[in-house]
Amino acid sequence: MKKSAAGLATELSRRGFVIGAAVAGAGLIVLSGLRASAAPAPIRALVFDGDALIVAGSNLGRSEDGGQSWTALLGPAAILALATHPERPGRLVAGLASGGVALSEDGGRTWQARSSGLPEGAIDAVTVAAGKPDMVYAAARGDGLWKSEDAGQSWSLAMDRPWLADAERDLLALASVDLATGMGGIWIYAGTPAGLTRVPDCFCRWQDVQPGNAMDALVSGDAPPSEAPLPAGEPIVALASANTAPETLYAALPSGVWTSRDGGVVWSRAAEGSASAVVIHPADEKHVVAVLDDILKHSRDGGTSWAALAAA
């Protein structure tokens, strides 16, 4: 059934509100899909599930053809963040504005609440550990970084909020990055209103991104200044790490999409415009999708050139 983008958004927003309330109370929710020609807007989060692109905006949309057409899914209301893992096809993890986490095992068609043990408050960011597909991290607004080792069945506090620029900062974006310089090979990178930080998966302490390994950073204390950091004073609202090249990162900022080829030490701008979301294809680090000035765009050459997807 075809609908206009405006009509689809109105219908699914009303129905999504009811579904979101049901998800918050736990239990299995079975959702049906509608066909639409364009992605839902405004887009707050996006992920790849294999080759399928999934976006969360006024409702949840899934495209199997690179963004040319979309299936609207009646998922939880007000999704703020999405995460997937290449070793768990079909599994989506969603952070909700109303609080808590929802999980789908069938590509977004049905959902279960996975919030037991999480604090109250919006979940602004979620990510799945690069080497452990059942290890999920969630950023609770006003609280800190929480982790689940059983795909959301139970949660525990992993780390308090980082202290940056003379204040505790909420985590706006998360990415699990498989770099040899981490204590166990894994870093959790976080975007905040005051810039970028990271913690090794020993959860020793938050630290600035710097060259060298995690132990050197812990011993040295203050990090040396980067030659080309992300712009100072800008919030980092989305982060993405390339599965096939973990040292390749992308970040969404009000000044655009930025990229690093060395694990976040040196950054360059890949696209201008206000960026609100970014994701990398799990099998191709040169295939990037981002939201720039509220327009869904993609690049097939690592950010050198960009084209719009499925205009409304």
Score class of each variant (00 low, 15 high):
M1V: 12
A6Q: 13
L8S: 13
A9V: 07
A9Y: 03
R14W: 14
V18K: 13
I19Y: 11
A22G: 03
G25C: 11
G25N: 15
G27E: 05
S32A: 14
R35V: 05
S37N: 13
P42K: 06
P42M: 08
I43C: 04
A45I: 05
G50W: 08
S58P: 00
N59R: 12
L60F: 00
R62L: 07
R62I: 06
E64S: 10
G66K: 03
Q68V: 12
W70D: 07
W70T: 07
T71F: 09
L74C: 10
G75W: 11
P76T: 07
A83R: 05
T84L: 06
P86F: 08
E87G: 06
E87L: 14
G90Y: 09
L92T: 06
V93G: 01
A94M: 12
G95P: 10
L96R: 10
G99I: 01
G99V: 01
G107M: 11
G108F: 11
T110L: 01
W111L: 05
Q112C: 02
Q112N: 13
S115M: 04
G117W: 02
P119F: 09
T127W: 01
A129V: 01
A130G: 02
A130Y: 04
A130P: 03
G131P: 00
K132D: 12
A140W: 02
G142R: 02
D143H: 13
W146R: 01
K147C: 02
K147P: 00
S148A: 01
E149W: 03
S156K: 14
W163I: 11
A165M: 10
D166R: 12
A167R: 15
D170K: 02
L171P: 05
A175P: 07
L179N: 01
T181Q: 14
T181N: 13
G182P: 08
M183S: 14
M183L: 13
I186A: 15
I188E: 02
A190F: 07
A190T: 09
G191F: 04
T192E: 08
T192R: 11
T197A: 10
T197I: 12
R198T: 01
R198V: 04
F203I: 06
F203K: 10
Q207V: 10
Q210R: 15
A214M: 08
M215P: 00
D216K: 08
A217T: 01
A217E: 02
V219C: 00
G221R: 04
A223N: 03
P224Q: 09
L230Y: 04
P231A: 11
G233A: 12
I236A: 03
V237R: 10
A240T: 11
S241C: 06
T244F: 08
T244Q: 12
Y250L: 13
L253P: 02
L253F: 04
P254T: 08
V257I: 15
V257W: 07
S260D: 08
R261K: 14
G263L: 07
G264M: 09
V266Y: 07
E272A: 15
V279R: 06
D284G: 03
K286Q: 14
K286I: 00
K286W: 00
V289T: 12
A290N: 03
D293R: 06
D293W: 03
D294K: 14
D294Q: 15
L296T: 04
H298I: 00
G303I: 03
T304V: 11
T304K: 14
S305R: 11
W306M: 04
L309R: 04
A311R: 14
A311E: 15
A312G: 15
